Simulated assay, not measured.
Amino acid sequence: MSVDQPAAEARKSIRHKTVAAAVADALRQRILAGEFAAGAQLRQDALASEFGISRIPVREALLQLEASGLVKIVPHRGAVVSGLSLEEIEDIFQLRVQLEPSLLILSAHHFTKDDYKELHGLKQEYSIALKSGLVQQWGELNRRFHMGLLRHAGRPRSMGIVASLLQDCDRPTRLQLSVSGDVARADTEHSQILDLCEAGEIVSAANLLRSHIEHAGHSLIEIYRKSLAA
């Protein structure tokens, strides 16, 4: 083996990892946008051909997506887009109800003028996306707003759990808003939560956040139950 060969292998490995990260990000966006439905099979050879790359970085990308819960590697089927059961939806929203209001109380006392400026900007961006029917943006903007409300809670473990729950809620949130017609309600309640925080009525803001999450969860569970009964 020549002296340069280990270095060449290292460079090759880095290129694969960089390409894999880019492929993972592209697939993540397509999954969250609903282009790949739950249960859809992601074939390595087809994706490698589409992206014009070898199967190695595609395989690495799919493993990254599996680690984040967006894909499951199933024996004899390969990579399959993850879906949520009714029980998982119930569990996710119950956990959010338990965690987010208490984290908001801890966080809101530390909001600065810059925090409020950023939150109002996010709220406005979300409002425009809701009214314009930009469905692919709803879940991500909702996640950013909720995480923004909780940013100063000082509870990194709880925040990590909430971040994961909100990612899991991305596709269900867009489904719930699209089917239920709760777009105006979601927009209004985000504004009210922010206004209550600014007025110093933090406990009231937390109570509204709790009912906001509970309503979304109950609405989505009803949608799931109807689809299962159909």
Rank of each mutant, 00 (worst) to 15 (best):
M1H: 11
S2A: 13
V3D: 13
D4V: 10
A8I: 08
K17L: 13
V19R: 14
A20Q: 04
A20Y: 10
V23K: 07
A26E: 13
L27N: 08
R28P: 00
L32S: 06
G39I: 03
Q41S: 08
L42Y: 04
R43D: 15
R43H: 12
D45A: 15
A48I: 02
L63M: 11
L63I: 11
A67N: 12
G69P: 11
K72D: 15
K72P: 00
V74Q: 09
P75S: 08
P75T: 07
V81Y: 03
E87F: 01
E90M: 12
D91H: 13
I92C: 08
I92S: 09
F93I: 03
Q94T: 09
L95I: 01
P101Y: 02
L103R: 09
I105M: 12
H109D: 10
H109C: 02
H110Q: 12
F111A: 03
K113A: 09
K123D: 12
E125A: 15
A129P: 06
V135E: 04
E140I: 08
H146F: 01
M147G: 08
R151S: 15
A153V: 04
G154C: 05
R157W: 05
M159C: 04
A163Y: 01
S164K: 10
S164T: 12
L165V: 04
L166F: 06
D168S: 12
D168E: 12
R171E: 02
Q176W: 04
G181Y: 03
A184G: 01
A186K: 06
D187P: 01
E189G: 02
H190A: 11
I193F: 04
I193T: 06
I193C: 10
D195V: 01
E198L: 05
E198I: 03
A199R: 15
V203F: 05
L208S: 05
I213W: 06
E214P: 00
H215Q: 11
A216F: 09
G217N: 06
H218W: 03
A229D: 14
